[in-house]
Write a protein that binds this DNA or RNA. Structure first.
Length: 302
DNA sequence: CACCCTTTGAAGGGT
DNA sequence: ACCCTTCAAAGGGTG
C-alpha cells in the first residue's frame, strides 16, 4: 500500500504539471549549484567495440572543439520553468555531446549485448513498465508527515532499517559516543538523473536481455541513456533536481562529504593495479580500462 | 562477507 | 577553471 501510494505520487509528479503548450520546453538555465562539468575519461576501445552497434546510434559530437570523450550533460532546467513552461525549446538547450564509452561486455544491436547471450524474452507488446522509483517520495520523511516514513536516503550504517538495541551498561562514555556516531543513520546522496533512469529501466533491461549482472546491465543502460532524446533526458534531470532540492530541505547541513570513507573503496593505486593485472569482469572477460586512450572515432566508422 | 564491476552525474577538495 | 576522487543503485562474481 505504501509503495502504491509512493508510486502513485511519483507518477503524478511525472505528469505534473502538464506542459502549457505543445513543443514548449523549459528555458535552459545554468546548473543549480556550481558550473562544474563532469569530466569522464577518454573512451577506451574494447576489442569487442568492433562488434558494437546501437539501435539508436549516438551522432558524433557536433562541436569538435570539445574534448574528446567528454560528456557534457544537459543543463538542468530551471525549476521555476518546470512550473511555467513558457518559452524556449529543447533545441535551445546546450548541446549534449554524449560519446558513450565502448562496452566492456559483449553487446548486441538489439538489446545491447551480443547475440550469443540468450535472446530477449519479453513478448512483443509487453506493457512498458511504469516508473517505480521509490526514492522521490515527496512528503515522506518530512517532519510532521502523517506517514512518518523516513526518507529513503536515510539508511542505517548496516544497511538495514532496524537499529540494534544499545547496551549502555557495558560501554564507557567515549565508547558509547563513538558507537553512537558509528550507528548514526547514513544519509545517502540524492540520486542523479542517470541513477533515476537506471532505477526505472533496470527491470525492463533485465526482462529483455535476461541478464542479471548489474555491471552488464549498467553498460546497456548507459548506452540507452545516451540514445535518449534531450527531451527524455530532461525529464530525469528535472526529477533529479527535485530530488536534490527535497534532500536539501530535509537535511540542510548534509554534505556528500559526510559519506566519504563509509564505503571502503580501493585506492587509486589499487584500482590501476587491478586493471593492469587484468581482473576479470562479470563476464569473465578483461576490462580494457588500462589500455591507451582511444582515438576519437565516429560511430559511423565503427 | 566485503569488495569489485559498470554506468553517469553531483559535489567537494586540491592545484 | 580544471582535475581528481567519491558515492549514489544494483546484484552476480570473486577472494
Amino acid at each position: 500500500m505504501y509503495k502504491d501510494t509512493v508510486y502513485s505520487a511519483f507518477n503524478l509528479l511525472m505528469h505534473y504539471p502538464p506542459p502549457s503548450g505543445a513543443g514548449q520546453h523549459p528555458q535552459p538555465q545554468p546548473p543549480l549549484n556550481k558550473a562544474s562539468q563532469p569530466t569522464h575519461g577518454v573512451p577506451q576501445l574494447s576489442p569487442l567495440y568492433e562488434h558494437f552497434s546501437s539501435p539508436h546510434p549516438t551522432p558524433a559530437p557536433a562541436d569538435m572543439n570539445q574534448k574528446q570523450g567528454v560528456h557534457r550533460p544537459l543543463q538542468t532546467p530551471d525549476l521555476s520553468g518546470f512550473y511555467s513552461l513558457t518559452s524556449g525549446s529543447m533545441g535551445q538547450l546546450p548541446h549534449t555531446v554524449s560519446w558513450p564509452s565502448p562496452p566492456l561486455y559483449p553487446l548486441s544491436p538489439s538489446c545491447g549485448y551480443r547475440q550469443h547471450f540468450p535472446a530477449p524474452t519479453a513478448a512483443p507488446g509487453t506493457p512498458y513498465p511504469r516508473f517505480t522509483h521509490p526514492s522521490l517520495m515527496l512528503g515522506s520523511g518530512v517532519p510532521g508527515h502523517p506517514a512518518a516514513i523516513p526518507h529513503p536516503a536515510i539508511v542505517p550504517p548496516s544497511g538495514k532499517q532496524e537499529l540494534q538495541p544499545y547496551d549502555r551498561s557495558l560501554k564507557t562514555q567515549a565508547e558509547s559516543k563513538a558507537e553512537k556516531e558509528a550507528k548514526k543513520p547514513t544519509i545517502k546522496k540524492p540520486l542523479n538523473a542517470f541513477m533515476l533512469y537506471m532505477k526505472e529501466m533496470r527491470a525492463k533491461v533485465i526482462a529483455e536481455c535476461t541478464l542479471k549482472e548489474s555491471a552488464a546491465i549498467n553498460q546497456i543502460l548507459g548506452r540507452r541513456w545516451h540514445a535518449l532524446s534531450r527531451e527524455e533526458q530532461a525529464k530525469y534531470y528535472e526529477l533529479a533536481r527535485k530530488e536534490r532540492q527535497l534532500h536539501m530541505q530535509l537535511y540542510p547541513g548534509w554534505s556528500a562529504r559526510d559519506n566519504y570513507g563509509k564505503k571502503k573503496r580501493r585506492s587509486r593505486e589499487k584500482h590501476q593495479e587491478s586493471n593492469a593485472g587484468g581482473k576479470r569482469n562479470a563476464f569473465g572477460t578483461y576490462p580494457e580500462k588500462a589500455a591507451a586512450p582511444a582515438p576519437f572515432l565516429p560511430m559511423t566508422v565503427l
